[in-house]
Design a protein around this nucleic acid. Sequence first.
DNA 1: CGACGATTTGAAATCAGTCAAGAGCAGTGG
DNA 2: CCACTGCTCTTGACTGATTTCAAATCGTCG
Lengths: 248, 248
Amino acid sequence: MSEASPLLPMLQKLSLWVSLGLREQQALLALPHTVRSMRPHDFIVREDDRPVHCCLLLSGFVVRHKVAGNGGRQIFSIHMKGEIVDLHNSILRRADHHVQALTAIDVAFIPAQAIRDIVAAYPLIGQAMWYETLVDAAIFREWTLNVGRRDSRARMAHLLCEFALRLKVAGLGDHAHFQLPMTQEQLSDALALSVVHVNRTLKALEADGVIRRSKRELQIIDFDHLARIGDFDSRYLHLDRLAGGQVP
Amino acid sequence: MSEASPLLPMLQKLSLWVSLGLREQQALLALPHTVRSMRPHDFIVREDDRPVHCCLLLSGFVVRHKVAGNGGRQIFSIHMKGEIVDLHNSILRRADHHVQALTAIDVAFIPAQAIRDIVAAYPLIGQAMWYETLVDAAIFREWTLNVGRRDSRARMAHLLCEFALRLKVAGLGDHAHFQLPMTQEQLSDALALSVVHVNRTLKALEADGVIRRSKRELQIIDFDHLARIGDFDSRYLHLDRLAGGQVP
DNA sequence: CGACGATTTGAAATCAGTCAAGAGCAGTGG
DNA sequence: CCACTGCTCTTGACTGATTTCAAATCGTCG
């Protein structure tokens, strides 16, 4: 219950979905855990693992992804501070996808059994975690739509909008001006495009004056315009309960 | 608790994930519900609804889907007997996608509040339902990979393998010989291809002697071969706990 | 400076989409 | 009973978005 508990971001995130009582809050902060730093490309979980830990991301960015038989990689989602990045795999007990660090990260490892126990003891916490995974699922659906039915321009715009908005919600800064934590190759894995085409698409958006870039730094000049290009409607993120409301 | 309760398939499905005690079983079967029949194309839930019911599918097939701004439709998953087709939307309270009947169906409508209550009262039931939605999410991920990183041939083969295997698991018949409950246009919405190309892809698979068709009737001549073409590995379905084990 | 990864650009190749039209089949109504 | 209507399926020809291949440039870090 120390104010400085590294688990605080988790408490804040879960409180978005369910209003937790003092007992639940204390139980959450009292969860056993080990904080560790990891480097870019390190795996938190590998497909086929039987995870014994559940990971709370304290800083940095990670992705979920999977590799097809033909070598193609597909990223399903990007995660940031405060998100529990491995509920899916650890609750199902057998990992069906990889979870990998995009940047340098700090992670709190919580024993999976401790999660199961706290969920059994405090149904409200279970409910909050369920919500969290349901929102993940909503994001997966939107990405399927993105990859399946939007052209390269819209796909890219959509990803940028989602990322910017989630950065803002996570309190990680300006949604109009931020650092993209990924290479163009990683972008291509998220968008199911080739690296070459990612490059061209970015340049096209820049040429049209919707974004500006220098290296990984990205500035969204007109968010609404980008949202229109990307067919982006934030409702799938289920942010209703937040102070702010809809699209910023 | 009459043997003939229409909710029995749900009990069986949930029992796959968690072993439920007598109390839980009774509570489940005692859930208030109304059985209704619906016709092809009827909507169970529409995007943006605030669902007051949660639907258990008793017979027939339904799909989840969403429509992009450019008119493109993307189907995320197909559901069959025994599946609770609207936990996602009703737990999140605001539907972010459509759920629509593919064929004539029978559905049990259960008040969403009754679901919330039973979950609060019986954590084990909540856990089982959580599992169910996690497996849904695993399927969404695999479909993203399918649409994003496999070519038309593999995509089609993958979908057929998944459908055949799930039919079998649901006890709905022979996984080598069945009726496809969807038009080629609906297939195209699931695979993110054009109708024309779906047609050509099916013919190609048939020409190669992997499947045989007459109208909607489909025969898989060599499942393993089809699985190889489709890069299909059933682990993402998390069927471990079932009697049968892996790929049939 | 050298080296390696990331980005950028051009040209050629290809998979899948679009357009258009015909065939098959089932249901409807005259 | 048959013509009519409306889907669904099929096929061919053409188009086009994106990929692939190849090579140059840029930047950073030891």
